[in-house]
Design a protein around this nucleic acid. Structure first.
Length: 220
DNA sequence: CTATAGATGCCCT
DNA sequence: GGGCATCTATAGC
């Protein structure tokens, strides 16, 4: 599995090996999407790219629940090349392009033919911060590196070429693993970010008190 | 610290 | 053409 074997050119400051613990498998992702979202808090996203190994702990997520969710890209059963991955097997990455310049990463959940996903909104950087700084010159503090869905994609070098990646097999250097850190018993919970309030439902969860959670002011 | 404008390209109830 | 699951720089307290 690619991320378990860092290449010889890994930078020394990345400390070489990711946290010990099992990579999440299909039994994790092929469940109710809300349960997957909540349980992803505290898990570790590991990324191997260009011989570098980076990882961070998930501290903020949002669920998008398919045809009946007006805010989802799959709302109303819409199906297109863009959202095709969400209809496929759970545990695959749905990476989309937005605002003309940003990538955002999701994990597809639910059975084949369903179209649900969890958006990864923020990470607490754990290793590879040097590489993250290089890819995020606008960041001023460590908490600027991964405190937003597009920020963390930039920090980890995740782009459209990673759309459809199998996070269970780690076929493109991305996996999620558990290092034994349990999800918070009482996570923060509220409306999703950037969604028109009238269509909104409380499907955003975060780790309370974590400084890497994205800040957000509701749109009027 | 908060508030606001502008960037920029793909998608399309 | 309008909107977008966003971010950054800048202005103003």
């Amino acid at each position: 599995m690619p991320v378990a074997k860092p290449s010889a050119t890994s930078r020394s400051e990345l400390s070489g090996t990711p946290p010990a613990g099992p990579v999440l498998g299909s039994e994790f992702f092929d469940r109710d999407t809300v349960a997957v979202a909540r349980d992803l808090l505290g898990k570790v996203l590991v990324r191997e790219v260009e011989g570098r190994l980076l990882w961070g702990r998930l501290v903020e997520v949002e669920a998008y629940l398919g045809p009946d969710d007006l805010a989802a890209h799959s709302s109303g059963g819409r199906r297109s090349p863009r959202n095709e991955v969400m209809y496929g097997a759970p545990g695959h990455a749905y990476v989309y392009f937005t605002y003309g310049m940003h990538w955002c990463a999701n994990v597809a959940c639910g059975d084949m033919g369903e179209c649900q996903a969890v958006l990864i909104r923020a990470l607490a950087p754990m290793a590879g911060a040097e590489a993250m700084w290089e890819d995020r010159p606008a960041a001023r503090r460590t908490t600027d590196l991964c405190s937003g869905p597009a920020k963390l994609c930039q920090a980890l070098g995740i782009t459209g070429s990673d759309n459809g990646a199998d996070l269970i097999a780690g076929d493109r250097g991305i996996v999620v693993l558990s290092d034994g850190c349990a999800p918070p018993r009482r996570p923060g919970n509220g409306g999703r970010t950037g969604i028109v309030v009238a269509t909104e439902r409380p499907w955003r969860w975060w780790v309370e008190e974590d400084p890497n959670v994205s800040r957000w002011t509701p749109r009027v």
